[in-house]
Amino acid sequence: MTTLSAAAPRVRPLAGVGQSLSLAWRGLVQIRHNPMELGDLSFQPIMFVLLFTYLFGGAISGDPQAYLPFMLPGIIVQSGLMATMNTGMGLSIDLHKGFFDRLQSLPIARWAPLAGRVISDTVKQGWSMFILLATGYAIGFRATQGVLGILGAFGLMLAFALLVSWFAVFIGTIAKEPEQVMMYGFTAIFPLSFLSNAYVPTHTLPWWLQAFVKINPVTQLSDAMRGLLTGGPVLDHALYGLLGGLVFAVIFAPLALVRLKRR
């Protein structure tokens, strides 16, 4: 036995990728049996675009059509940020229902369950962003920066979501029950996403609020998104926004991994 176990083989990285993809498949197949999730992913984005455009458009920009190009990039960032909480929620459900333990007892890469979840959630994020853009197009939004601009917008959003999802994963590991994930998540993410220029121009705010709004990565990311979709400066805003996301990842990734290991 000792000679046999001396090699102590681990999972080959390529096998780990395959396992992650199997688990990502699981995350996507779930939608079929859970119509609620389909609603979250598809109808909610449509509703929010219509709601914000026609309800606030007149008040903020004088006219819904003038507001749409300003607001749509902002809502993409905001809903992407909110959707990261689904990663935490799904993880929390797995932890509480015991499915996570089942996975941990299988001879798979330790990182595969998390990677699989993130892959499927990224696909869902991409889908929601597509619905947001398509709804915008249906009511008159036009991207002026070509296919590259749109691809850049997707890439930037998904990268940011990926970084912030470490925060969601951490919340998922500390929540006593899955419902708490949404509560914690919204408490943190709601102010972050609304205290930005995602929906309102910064200059309309009191000076002390402007100070926060200007340093909020959501503001920077919304501006980068506007640049990619309708023209304007991109690089500085994008880097600043991603830096903000990176801060989330650097703080919460180690905390989350420690929590998962110590359970």
Partner: peptide
């Protein structure tokens, strides 16, 4: 090994 019981369940939303 195979593990079954209260702490090793299946995914309820899958068939």
């Amino acid at each position: 090994i195979g593990l079954t019981g209260q702490y090793a369940s299946v995914d309820e939303s899958l068939t």
